[in-house]
Design a protein around this nucleic acid. Structure first.
Lengths: 197, 197
DNA sequence: CCTACCGATCGGTAGG
DNA sequence: CCTACCGATCGGTAGG
């Protein structure tokens, strides 16, 4: 039993999280050992534990933070936007902006959330459900007030699948902005949701 | 250096692969130890190595087999089908049938292919590219001969993302057959690809 | 933040 | 297919 500072948010702890995020996104959670993280920080592995309480705590912190950021940005992007189609557009843009801005953390989130313990995993799932509900609600809304015609579950499934898979195909290389990609994507998907003719 | 039978296809080796597939799909590749696999076979861990040459060989065998099955089934399903829309329909059905018939192996394929060594990984990527090209070609074909209007890359991206994400949402619970789900999915996506009106 | 270490467990091998 | 091990490495701790 040592100092309990492992839980507080210090600059050095933030360094650690950032370094761990990059490393885990590169080689995976199990392959990323505490010794490698310590090496990149220029300290010994035992010294890590004055900043963290366990390896899983690092993973949890990374994932919780990025899942929360997805939600916050989505809330901010849709604030005051009431048209369902415009809400979807804002949500898609925000999602792609997250991938552009925080790619390594987003990869860790999508690739490694299953490795969390049951309790932590449940909390992460809760956050993801809340996030995805924003999309589902906008689509359901569009079916009521606009000319959307598809099964709302099906439409949400197509859109969310494409976005969840986006880290595999969206490279923010400067050629296409999140805005442009989101608009192109929605052009196809929304057209599919509208009643024909 | 012992017997080289580890590479041949014996009934006992098939047992091993099947048991490993289930275990890895349940808890992940690193968490699935050779001792657990041996336990489920009712033998000691050292004895595994008369059937296999390494743990990665097991993973490679699983993934190569399922990736090949995706391709074979796709070829069979589209044999003699020339209409692009019908080809897409056949490909989607075939894909969902794979998930229904071989869910654990499919999960291992999608979740764990990154853990293969570079050479094995390259071979798997080659197979996946060939598989996805079938979809891309059908969509490009549809743009030439039918009324598809979208960017072919974008259309393929939406369709393939939805299918690649399908292990997360498609539960073959008997309520909806692969055929029905594929048709519903394509109704939305194809409508999105057609020129409006 | 370091030294020095722990118990556990890993994939894999030798020799039968 | 088993016994009996191996060297390596893991996450984590005690005590300073």
């Amino acid at each position: 039993m040592r100092s309990e500072r492992g839980q507080r948010d210090t600059p050095r702890r933030r360094d650690l999280i950032e370094i761990a995020t990059d490393l885990i996104s590169e080689i995976g959670y199990e392959q990323a050992t505490v010794r490698m993280i310590a090496d990149r920080m220029g300290i010994k592995s035992g010294s890590l534990y004055s900043h963290i309480s366990s390896k899983e705590d690092v993973l949890y912190k990374i994932i919780l933070d990025v899942a929360g950021d997805f939600l916050e940005r989505a809330d901010r992007a849709t604030e005051g936007v009431h048209d369902p189609e415009e809400r979807l557009r804002a949500l898609c843009r925000s999602h792609l902006e997250m991938i552009r801005d925080r790619r390594p953390a987003v990869r860790v989130y999508f690739d490694e959330w299953r490795k969390l313990g049951d309790a932590n995993q449940a909390e992460v799932i809760r956050l993801r459900e809340r996030y995805e509900d924003g999309f589902r609600l906008a689509i359901a809304d569009g079916i009521e007030t606009k000319a959307f015609d598809a099964d709302p579950q099906l439409g949400a499934r197509v859109l969310l699948s494409t976005l969840n898979w986006a880290p595999s195909w969206y490279v923010a290389d400067g050629k296409l902005s999140p805005r442009e990609v989101a608009d192109q994507l929605l052009e196809v998907i929304l057209r599919g949701l509208y009643t024909r003719g």
